[in-house]
Write a protein that binds this DNA or RNA. Structure first.
Lengths: 163, 163
DNA sequence: CCGACTCGGTTGCTTGATGCAACCTTATGT
DNA sequence: ACATAAGGTTGCATCAAGCAACCGAGTCGG
């Protein structure tokens, strides 16, 4: 992307995409949501170029979607955590996941199933528990591998969000 | 974007973003959903470069998200319509819209309100009518200007989808 | 004590996507 | 005859993404 803005668009979709619409950004958020918190983990899991990852993380921190916290000193090492604003992207991710599931042909079923932590019921693409009917948020759900997946690469979404 | 794929990602979010994650793509879908169907209309409304718009439209047609139909011959002129697969992006757009509304400071309120056609109730970011509780789809809703907006640029989402 | 490895980046270079303006074709308006 | 419209295509300049090498602080193995 040349510029990451969409000038002249008075629309919250455009505003949202200015922030999270760059290549890799939503996948980074997904991975952090799934418990990947460190630079190396994210880099290896995504296969993204290191400089690009560094620049995306910086932007996400600037936009208050991620928070960068040291987990040790000397050498200083950092982890990235989702803020409330970042966790709040969960419905959008679930909606995209649902669309992808419905329209991408996978031989062995969807690679990820989202379930309601409390009751174990499946979660719809609207982020609603199909078992108990509650409208869920990131912390209420977690992801399980669904079909034939490489466990190395499986993001277990929202398994341990935010801390 | 260099390549528009995310190699090695066994995840429907990644699959979805491979198709609709390129710059401009979701905004094009939003505009077509709002009734903009012609090349010139889309180009002017979005301010996107013409060659980029042409390439996005081609890809969206290839991916069966848009359908290109002639509306006159000699000279041949075309309009773009959403397929079912394209209309099915509505929940994701609504979720992004909601996130943008919640986290983008607008002085005069959200620039767009989505309402349920049938009962006129406001629609949540999960695509659910807050008045009657129904889980909605693209055709069930339409968008109204919400705050201080330039009417020239206001996409009236899903006002007349698909035909 | 020396070398190899880890982690979290940064730097430099190359490739390719995006932005922009000009042009093309068919046709209508005046 | 000339301008305008629609729906693109072409060429060129610029900027972002991919890739590999490097760096600095520290730890581990021998």
């Amino acid at each position: 992307m040349l510029r990451h803005d969409y000038p002249g668009q008075d629309c919250s979709i455009a505003k949202a995409l200015e922030v999270v619409g760059e290549r890799w950004t939503l996948l980074i958020v997904r991975d952090v949501m799934s418990g990947r918190r460190r630079f190396g983990e994210l880099q290896k899991g995504l296969g993204v170029a290191r400089n690009v990852l560094a620049s995306r993380l910086e932007r996400l921190v600037d936009e208050d979607i991620l928070e960068r916290r040291p987990y040790q000193e000397s050498p200083e090492r950092y982890e990235y955590f989702l803020t409330e604003k970042g966790l709040d992207l969960w419905p959008a991710l679930v909606a995209l996941l649902g669309w992808g599931d419905r329209h991408t042909p996978y031989e062995s079923g969807p690679p990820l199933r989202i379930v309601h932590k409390e009751c174990g019921g499946p979660v719809s693409d609207r982020g609603i528990c199909e078992s108990c009917g509650k409208v869920l948020h990131a912390r209420d759900a977690r992801a399980l591998p669904g079909g034939a997946v490489d466990p190395e690469r499986t993001p277990a979404m929202a398994q341990a969000p935010h801390a």
